[in-house]
C-alpha cells in the first residue's frame, strides 16, 4: 500500500464531508418546511443532527407522512 500524505487524504475526504453536510441540511430544511411531520419536529432535528447518515435517512423514510 502506498503511503498517502494526510493532506491528500483530506482532499479526498473533504467532498464527502460536504456531501454529508448537504444531506443533513436538506433534511433539516425539509423538516422545517414540512407541515405534517411524524412525531415532534424537535426530535427529528436532533436525530438528523446527531444521527449522521442514518439520522437523515431515517427522517427521509419515516419522518414525513406519506401523501
Amino acid at each position: 500500500m502506498d503511503a498517502i500524505s494526510s493532506e491528500k487524504l483530506l482532499i479526498l475526504i473533504a467532498p464527502l464531508i460536504v456531501l454529508q453536510l448537504l444531506l443533513m441540511i436538506i433534511a433539516l430544511v425539509v423538516c422545517a418546511r414540512s407541515k405534517d411531520v411524524n412525531g415532534p419536529k424537535l426530535l427529528w432535528v436532533l436525530i438528523i443532527l446527531f444521527g449522521n447518515l442514518i439520522g437523515s435517512v431515517l427522517f427521509f423514510v419515516f419522518g414525513r407522512r406519506s401523501s
Binding site: 487524504l9 475526504i13 464527502l16 456531501l19 448537504l22 444531506l23 436538506i26 447518515l53 435517512v57
Partner: peptide
C-alpha cells in the same frame, strides 16, 4: 426528494468504505 437523497446516501456509502479500510 428521493432522487436527491438516495443517490447521495449511496455515494457516501460507496466512498466511505475505502476510506475506512485505509484508515
Amino acid at each position: 426528494g428521493k432522487l436527491i437523497w438516495v443517490p447521495v446516501v449511496f455515494i457516501l456509502l460507496g466512498a466511505s468504505q475505502p476510506i475506512v479500510s485505509y484508515m
